[in-house]
Each structure stands twice: as structure tokens, then as C-alpha cells.
Computed example of a mutant assay.
Amino acid sequence: MSYAIIGFGNIGRALAKAFARKGIEVSVATTRDPESFAADAAAIGPKIIAKTLAEAVKADIIFLAVRFEQHPEVAKALPTWQGKTIVDVTNAYGVSPEQLGGQPSSKVVGQAFSGARLVKGFNHLAAAALDQDPAVHGGRRVVFLASDDVAAADEIGALAERLGFAPIQLGGLSEGGLLVHARGKSWGHLIFKDLVKFE
């Protein structure tokens, strides 16, 4: 299984650190030349590999950590996303529900990445929290996951466990997923909830 993070802002870097902590190789890419951020990627860890967008999207599991408005541009990188799992880490804060056709933002993202299995996840934590080791206070930091594809959600849940987080499945995008979606100028009820699960 291969992994990539598209976007190398605060959230993309925090995700890269999560992979580095566990020694799991992950590609990182932006729309820029990878040489412009290769040193920053290498500074996070030896298994954080800066690549072009075209190279990074060859991965099996892709974390979409760009601004919501940028997702259509990323989606153009492949004619079909069949066989890929996209983890939608975007937040459509400030985008009106009308612009989204009244749908959750992840449904809009899913339509752009045609053929992909889509899981909403890792988007509810602020970068400063996501950046930290998820082992806290004798428990594990929670990540919420939502998807209309149960198998994909389980797959990302297993990856979240490998990364040290405690995944909590919220159900479909139009049900539990609304708890971690921004709508216009309001946040879902679970966004920014920094919770710890004790075994």
C-alpha cells in the first residue's frame, strides 16, 4: 500500500509528521516544483518524499490537504481515480451551501475525483493538535471518519490506528459526516473537538 499527501501547508506537514513518527513512507506534493519544498520534507523525516503531483497521485491512498477551492485543480491530475482512496481533509468554510448544491462538501469532492472511494477524515483537528503525537494523557487522540463506502472507511480507520490515532466512524457523508463539515460560515459540531480515547 502506498500513501501520498497532496498539500504541504500546516495540515499537510502535520500529516507528514504522523507518518514520520511511525516510519511509514509517504509522498508529499503540491502544484509547485518538488525541489521548492524537498528540504522541508526531508527535515520531517527520511521517509517523507517530495514528488511532483503527477508522481504522487500514483499512490493507493491519497490525503487531500489543500484548500477546498483547489480540489478541482488536483482532480485534473488523473482522468479517472478508479482504485484510489481519497481522504478528504479539506474544509469548505466560507463556501455557501448554494455553491455546494446543498450537498456536504465531501460529496462535491467525491464528484470531482470520479471513481475514487472517498473518506472524510483528519479535518476536524486544528493543525497544532494534528501536529502532536496522538498518544496523550495515557490515551489516543481521536480522529473522526465518515464515508458512504464502509470498506474504505475501515481501511482508513486501520491506517489511523497504525498512525497512533483512535478512529471513530461517524457513518455516511450525509449523516454523521455533517458533524465534521463546514457549512457556509458555521462549523460542524465535532470540528475542533480535540478528544482522547482511553482503552
Rank of each mutant, 00 (worst) to 15 (best):
Y3D: 10
A4Y: 07
A4R: 01
I6D: 06
G7R: 04
F8Q: 07
G9C: 06
I11Q: 12
G12Y: 04
R13E: 13
A16R: 00
A16D: 08
A16Q: 06
A16L: 06
A18Y: 02
A18I: 06
A20E: 11
R21H: 02
R21D: 05
R21M: 11
R21G: 09
R21K: 02
G23R: 06
E25M: 05
V26N: 04
V26T: 13
T31F: 03
R32P: 05
D33N: 15
D33R: 03
P34A: 05
E35F: 03
S36K: 09
F37T: 09
A41R: 01
A41I: 02
A42M: 05
A42K: 07
G45K: 03
G45V: 03
K47I: 00
K47P: 00
K47R: 10
I49N: 09
A50K: 04
L53M: 08
L53K: 02
A54V: 01
E55D: 14
E55W: 00
A56N: 00
A56T: 02
K58S: 07
K58L: 04
D60F: 04
D60I: 01
I61Q: 05
I61S: 01
F63H: 00
L64I: 03
V66I: 01
R67D: 06
R67I: 02
F68S: 02
H71C: 03
P72L: 02
P72N: 03
E73K: 12
E73C: 00
V74T: 09
A75S: 12
K76A: 13
K76L: 14
T80L: 08
T80D: 14
Q82A: 13
I86G: 01
I86C: 12
D88R: 08
V89D: 04
Y93N: 05
G94T: 10
G94D: 12
G94W: 12
P97V: 14
Q99V: 09
L100G: 08
G101R: 11
Q103K: 15
Q103N: 15
S106V: 13
K107W: 10
G110E: 13
Q111Y: 00
F113K: 00
F113H: 03
S114K: 15
G115S: 09
R117H: 14
K120S: 12
F122I: 11
N123C: 08
H124N: 11
L125W: 05
L125M: 13
L125N: 07
A126Q: 12
A128H: 14
A129N: 15
D131L: 12
D131C: 10
Q132C: 07
A135N: 15
A135D: 14
H137G: 10
G138Y: 11
R140G: 05
R141V: 13
V142I: 15
V143H: 10
A146Y: 05
S147M: 11
S147C: 10
D149S: 14
V150D: 13
A152L: 14
A153E: 13
D154M: 04
E155Q: 15
I156S: 12
I156T: 07
I156Q: 12
G157I: 06
L159V: 11
E161M: 08
R162F: 09
F165A: 07
A166P: 04
P167Q: 03
I168D: 01
G171M: 04
G172A: 11
L173E: 06
E175H: 10
G176F: 06
G177H: 06
L178M: 13
L178P: 00
H181I: 03
H181T: 03
S186W: 02
S186G: 06
G188P: 10
L190S: 07
F192R: 10
F192G: 06
D194T: 11
V196K: 05
F198K: 09
